[in-house]
């Protein structure tokens, strides 16, 4: 097999894996948009906040230590214990549920029936608040996240492809784990929304708030639930991205990677987020591989948006988005 083809296959495979990571971020956006029509600008910051909280709980860090020390003159930093990853994830999820309740209770409850742009602006405010709150709570240093996920080149794939093709493919173990986790997550989310009472209620709220209210569905409960689920998805994305680069404040910028995925896949489709992520991942990597060297490289950021825009020309609602038909 020609070398260029082998390299292209390797790049494509890695693009698929990168696409899964983009899709993980996009999923959180889709969930909230589907259930409440809110484009949640704070989704990236939620991933950051959840990852910060996870590391903080695992390492036994005292929350708001700087503030407490400054006010009371103490020298507190750590409780002196470390917690297992699984327990920490469960506790972090508790924090994210609490956050979902607070968001609903203090922000969106007061904004029912407001224009979408107002709700969007509220999420911008929420994003800045959470970023500052996360900084105050856990500090702004870069934290190593170790929940036991394997990382580095998969030797088996490297050796097998080398023996078969004469060139060993590079696939990161973390990317494989992310692909498995994303698959399971999508399966669980689809099953939840199709086969559970709460999932069906969520879909009913997504279709028509007023109608859902009229049959006794608690809008309040559903929105808290949706924000909690989005918080869980944010936690998964935060763990995957945090394991790659350490948990740091630029983690919130991963939202930028999700936008072209949403444009392409549609804002209301869970499978759309996955397929969109895969197309963006593969598209940007192949473009960088074949065209990048000719035009100076660093094409991935902008090419993802170009790719999404090309799709929008043909399907304005995105690949899996709902077609909006308005009768005059």
């Amino acid at each position: 097999m020609p070398e260029t083809l082998l390299y292209a296959i390797e790049v494509m495979t890695n693009g698929l894996m990168a696409g899964v990571l983009y899709a993980l971020v996009a999923l959180g956006f889709v969930l909230i948009y589907k259930a409440s029509g809110i484009f949640n600008y704070a989704q990236g910051v939620m991933a950051l906040f959840s990852a910060l909280t996870l590391v903080g709980i695992m390492d036994g860090q005292v929350p708001f230590a700087h503030l407490i020390n400054a006010v009371f003159g103490t020298d507190l930093h750590h409780f002196g214990w470390t917690l297992p990853a699984l327990l920490s994830i469960i506790l972090t999820m508790g924090v994210m549920v609490l956050l979902a309740w607070a968001v609903q209770r203090f922000i969106f409850r007061h904004l029912v029936n407001q224009e979408p742009i107002i709700l969007f602006m509220a999420t911008i405010g929420l994003a800045y608040f959470m970023e500052g709150f996360g900084d105050m709570m856990w500090g702004s240093d870069i934290k190593k996240l170790d929940v036991g996920l394997p990382q580095g080149m998969n030797s088996w794939i490297d050796e097998t492809t080398f023996n078969a093709l004469g060139y060993g493919f590079f696939i990161d173990n973390l990317d494989i784990v992310a692909a498995v986790v994303a698959t399971v997550l999508v399966g669980v989310l689809v099953a939840f929304s199709q086969y559970t009472k709460q999932g069906r209620a969520m879909r009913a709220v997504a279709d028509d708030h007023q109608a859902a209210l009229s049959v006794g569905i608690s809008l309040n409960f559903i929105w808290i639930m949706v924000w909690s689920v989005a918080g869980f998805v944010a936690l998964v994305a935060g763990v995957m991205w945090g394991a790659k680069s350490g948990v740091q404040f630029s983690l919130s910028l991963i939202a930028l990677k999700a936008l072209p995925v949403l444009m392409l896949g549609g804002f209301t489709s869970i499978p759309g987020a996955i397929v969109g992520g895969l197309i963006i991942g593969v598209g940007e990597k192949l473009f960088e591989f074949f065209v990048g060297p000719m035009i100076g490289g660093a094409t991935e950021n902008w090419f993802a948006y170009v790719l999404a825009l090309i799709f929008l020309v043909f399907r304005p609602q995105g690949l899996f988005g709902e077609k909006i038909i308005e009768r005059v």
């Binding site: 390299y7 693009g15 894996m17 990168a18 910028l253 100076g296 490289g297 660093a298 950021n301």
Partner: peptide, 15 residues
């Protein structure tokens, strides 16, 4: 090998 801001995804460069 340029890397776009912020640089969270560098798979192409390292491949």
């Amino acid at each position: 090998l340029p890397v776009d801001h912020p640089g969270q995804e560098q798979k192409s460069q390292w491949l």
